[in-house]
Nucleic acid binder design. Sequence first.
RNA 1: CGGGCGGUAGCGCAGCUUGGUUAGCGCACUAGACUGGGGGUCUAGAGGCCGCGGGUUCGAAUCCCGCCCGCCCGACCA
Length: 474
Amino acid sequence: MPERLTKKSQNMSRWYTDVVRMAKLADYAPVRGCMVIMPYGYALWENIQGLLDGRFKATGHVNASFPLLIPESFLKKEAEHVEGFAPEVAWVTEGGGEVLEERLAVRPTSEAIICHMYAKWIRSYRDLPVLINQWANIIRWEKVTRLFLRTTEFLWQEGHTAHATAAEAEQEALKMLEVYREFMETELAMPVIVGRKSDSEKFAGATATYALEALMSDGKALQAGTTHDLGQNFAKAFDIKYLDKDETEKYVWQTSWGVSTRMVGGLVMTHGDDAGLVFPPRIAPTQIVVVPIWGDDTRDIVGAAAGALAKRLRSRFRVETDLRDEYRPGWKFNEHEMRGVPLRLEIGPKDIEKGQVVAVRRDTKEKLFIPQDNIEVEVEGLLEQIQGSMYDRAKLFLNDNTFEVNNMDEMIKVMRTTRGFMSTHWCMDPACEQAVKDATKATVRVMPFEADQSNGKCVVCGKPGKKAYFAQAY
RNA sequence: CGGGCGGUAGCGCAGCUUGGUUAGCGCACUAGACUGGGGGUCUAGAGGCCGCGGGUUCGAAUCCCGCCCGCCCGACCA
């Protein structure tokens, strides 16, 4: 960990690792690819959890917890599923000093174990829909790892639902996609493009996968969340049937959907700058930091004023007071900027005299003098402004870095310069997708839902194609 | 998993080529004093399985082998 932060504008990759560690979001664990989420990073995750969980409950979902270990035979029941995940599964082969009769997978995702249980629980159309979510940890033996963005173990939530009809399941997958989109844009101030995944990027075992893709400031796309319409693939593999009103037995229609701690990485890269993290107020672990500006003769009076100010604000905001005497104000300013605290309030002898505080926005570094009288209202307004302008800025960046392209030469040019999203048309042939990847490293991120998506010529072969967004993926 | 680079005090590094004093530097840390509105100054101090294991040698941070971990570039993935 360096003493000073690498400039984001100079080396985004290095900046990312530095800032995650210097801000104490996470640290490396002794096992390859594993990380410790430190208290400041976990506080962020808890805020994300709270805001998402509320939305899940509001859409009728309930939480449960399924086991970490999955018998190998369960994983093998759905052919595509096992094929997709086999390379990255960790296995338990011994327990209590004895070799197990059947080895157990440490879950790479929980479809198998949950479907097994659903087969036991579902008997009648009256049992449907089943709308269960779980907050859990997952192990996937990834070859290349990055803090938060791709780790061997990660935290996530996975929703698993079962429905009576195909239409209901599809509706659920799209509904949760919208829940995610609204969450990311409202709370994380992170604009995304949404749409359907190409077959090559589809979840192993799904009939359709939908995704939300955010654009990082180095022009690469980050998949921030996915929802899957599983059709009846798992229902048939796990024999999840119900007796319908018409007295015939039918397989259920299912969905699954998830977002992970990877979003923290997306948040860091979307908003951070050369000075460090910038957190949107709505999810920032600390929204306001109060820094006293004092000297030997003013320590008592300024300390008391800072304490009183923090106390006033604490009932409505997440407030930290930095009373450490071993650091000077300038040092503290840099530290809290690096940690991404959205708003800093400075109070010193001059401010006490004038009945004001000095407020400094993290996103713009703008300095404002605000009267103490109705500080709560002023601060609330400021935090809302910060949230709003962070989103606007990110949205502008997304728009400015989304390019219409009509041929491979244009794609190559974009990828050699700014990168970003490339809006074009694609015939849905995997060979054409591969050709783009070979030439530019970009892949199909999503095919948007927009109505005009049908008419256009494939960027590679010129045959009729649908609208698609290409980008280099994280 | 292939190619490259790295691991020495909490962090960043030097020392390794050519084996041999007590393993060094900067920052951070501790104590005290001065200081305090954008990363302060001085004085004193503490801190080391030199990544792990083996080998060569009278002697290994240094040479050899194996392993672990990290970073970058490729193939695979949330």
